[in-house]
Write a protein that binds this DNA or RNA. Structure first.
Lengths: 340, 340
DNA sequence: TTGTACGCGTTATCAT
DNA sequence: ATGATAACGCGTACAA
């Protein structure tokens, strides 16, 4: 079956391409009769417009691009879900690219998306991203850009995120109120903003409640950011601090679950001997025993909002309105379960 | 910053568009001097070719489309990861669409992808897909199509899948050899091929080992295909069969974990009183207590192979070679842990 | 060695 | 009510 174009339809009906095109777009100056003729043949021949041609002509690709560090991550998966739903509703397609936490890749992917002529771009920065020329390039091309989750303070574009510092503060305050005093923190790397912010929230909460901040209780736990990291770091923690520690606050649920596994393997009772508190509310967290206390981060909502914002900016741009960058901070909530 | 086209470059250098274009493509009939001039300006102005124009001209979009039922699924996530890696390697972009297990959506998404002019399409069918005209349409447009995981026997295109029947057969045979005799099966819906095949493998294994097949031990467990289904169905199973049952084989790990949770909540020992066997080797399965026995399905590999196959067919088509549909069946393996 | 001219499929303005 | 025509940006056969 040959691919059907307006031209074929026009020939078949002895009409001009222009007329067919207008008939399909329901222009008022085309007769009912012709419109019906065209519509019927279009259905019969299964005509599907060529979006590249439309794109070239209209300067709209009806496509947005997304760059995320890692798709195999429950949290990102929920975000993407939100993005897809919102985009789909407005008739946009989504190109997804994975930076694998590699800065060079992230840069290349930006170029690819620009070359594709996407109408807008959503980015969650890789942990290794430490300069932002590629984001500037996006803005220089006046392509709407929205950062989500892993954002940078340096770039002046719309952002959708949570208040990591506050969330961490709330966790640690909760633990302190519950009577825990020696609270360890398994943090992420030194660069990512959310790793920094969660750490700062942790520290601030301690100080605000007159508990000395002990740097030796803070572990960087980002080898692979997986469950084994949590397992191994717990091992190290207990070796270095014995049972003086009475709680662990981890930067992700996966790491918390690694910690729980270690504690369970070594018959250390949770939360009696040590409490564990995670971050993200990975749905698995409610299923394990003991169920994990954690922070609900509303990934789907983050994706939906980011998509909405982007689509708004795209629309604004097309209308020639200059939309100001917005910063949306979504609320988080403590989810208290059995591990704390 | 205005968007840069070949035209701008040409004007700036007082050359024709054709010369600039050829210089960039390293045509032998362009002088070194001109090439250097062009390249330098291209870098300075940050020229990025417009892919829609290229697409229109070359009939290649360097883009493939993927339709999957549900992205928030560890298994699919790993598949997508494989797809992205392979596509990226060959310079292809990936448009991901989610059917949400809705047949109507799946059909619409096929149209969208065709209209986008993707060079090829990968589909994992929704559970509710019961006719295949939309897939036929893809093939009629002579767009390469590869089905993966959830495939249909009716359509004659390339497929990448596992042998569900054999995998299930292996599981049940293993359980029988271990001494389990009253083995329940929590299956999926009646339509999806892999649900059917796993069930058939289960049944065949029983019969081959002289264990009567008892239909009352088979539960359809697909309300949401989540952990709660497993929890509730286990409840129902025990209510109806008491402790005569000594093993449960579930269609997915998530459901198995729901079952484990129920058993743990009710102090029923696993595997002493009841063994549990899952399917997929979701990475969480190794972390819970007791660690879940399951079937490794190699999702990443499925994605990689499917992508490879598709890219091959695309290449073949462009060379005018007619590539025969291939069927790749990837090996599965039993992963024996503590729950069986 | 460089440039001219055409076409990919569509939209939209302006004639007829 | 319909059609001729130009334009979007690029690639390439052919002419100069």
């Amino acid at each position: 079956m040959k691919v059907v174009t307006l031209k074929q339809i026009a020939q078949e009906l002895n009409l001009s391409i222009a007329t067919v095109s207008k008939a399909l777009k329901d222009y008022p100056d085309i007769s009912k009769k012709t419109k019906k003729l065209v519509h019927d043949l279009v259905i019969k021949l299964n005509y599907i417009p060529n979006s590249s041609a439309v794109h070239l002509r209209t300067q709209q690709s009806k496509t947005i691009g997304v760059i995320i560090p890692d798709i195999v991550h429950y949290f990102f998966t929920t975000v993407i879900n939100g993005i897809l739903d919102e985009a789909e509703k407005k008739g946009y397609l989504v190109i997804i690219m994975q930076s694998n936490e590699i800065f060079e890749l992230e840069k290349k992917q930006v170029d690819l998306l620009i070359s594709k002529g996407v109408d807008g771009i959503l980015v969650s920065l890789s942990n290794k991203t430490n300069n932002f020329l590629h984001l500037k390039k996006i803005m220089n091309h006046s392509i709407p850009l929205v950062l989500f989750d892993k954002v940078s303070k340096v770039i002046n574009c719309s952002k959708v995120m949570i208040d990591d510092r506050k969330a961490a503060y709330d966790v640690v305050t909760y633990l302190i109120k519950k009577g825990y005093k020696r609270i360890a923190h398994f943090r992420g790397g030194l660069d990512p903003q959310n790793s920094i912010d969660r750490f700062l929230g942790y520290k601030r909460a301690l100080l605000d409640h007159n508990i000395a901040f002990d740097p030796s209780l803070v572990y960087i736990c980002n080898k692979n950011s997986d469950f084994k990291d949590g397992y191994d770091t717990t091992n190290q923690l207990l070796k270095e601090h014995g049972d003086s520690v009475d709680a662990i606050f981890t930067i992700t649920d996966v790491i918390a679950i690694g910690a729980l596994k270690y504690l369970s393997d070594h018959k250390i009772k949770v939360p009696e001997s040590i409490a564990v508190f995670g971050f993200s509310n990975w749905f698995m967290s409610s299923v394990i025993t003991p169920a994990l206390s954690t922070v609900e981060q509303h990934g789907y909502e983050i994706g939906r909002k980011a998509s909405q914002l982007l689509l708004q900016e795209i629309k604004g741009k097309q209308k020639g309105i200059n939309v100001k960058p917005q910063k949306i901070i979504l609320q988080t909530e403590l989810v208290i379960r059995d591990s704390s």
